[in-house]
């Protein structure tokens, strides 16, 4: 997604919002190009390499969650035990709470990933529908 800003070239403001070319005769060409771009984007299915890369990113992200949360929980409990003199009960309790926290982190990360995947899927099918409409107009 491009975010264009207005620019000023040789003292003339050039609005870059929307289309740069204003020639009405070429408007049809531009619309046609836009439809073809949408169609090309819709055709792009993620290939094996893309899936593998995102899986690598995801797996290294999830692997740590449970272990670290458990250790943090255990460390908090151990320190509280030392302060309150309740050895070893709080350490055990917080170790379990940490484990639960790790699972919650993991679930949230997976949910976020699923949402992103569904959103990408929806965008692709919307692009496909748009491209289909453009094709219909051409044949009429």
């Amino acid at each position: 997604m491009l975010h264009l800003r207005d620019t000023r070239i040789a003292g003339v403001d050039i609005p870059r919002k929307g289309r740069c070319l204003t020639d009405p005769d070429r408007q049809r060409d531009l619309d046609d190009l836009e439809a073809r771009l949408a169609a090309a984007k819709a055709r792009h299915e993620p290939d094996a390499r893309e899936i593998a890369t995102s899986a690598l990113a995801a797996s290294t992200r999830y692997a740590m969650e449970i272990a670290v949360a458990t250790v943090v929980g255990g460390a908090i409990g151990w320190q509280l035990d030392r302060w309150l003199g309740t050895k070893p009960w709080l350490a055990i309790l917080f170790l379990l709470l940490g484990l639960a926290a790790g699972f919650i982190n993991l679930l949230r990360a997976v949910n976020r990933e699923t949402e992103a995947m569904l959103a990408a899927e929806a965008e692709r099918s919307a692009g496909k529908a748009k491209a289909g409409r453009a094709d219909d107009e051409e044949t009429h």
Binding site: T60, R61, M64, E65, V68, A69, V71, V72, G73, I76, F94, L97, G98, A100, A101, G102, I104, N105
Partner: peptide, 25 residues
Amino acid sequence: ILIVPIEIISYLSRPLTLSIRLFAN
């Protein structure tokens, strides 16, 4: 009573997971 400590531990574990992930890889 159960959720709040879990959420706090989950929040405190963030800097550790963030740093250990990069370092370990």
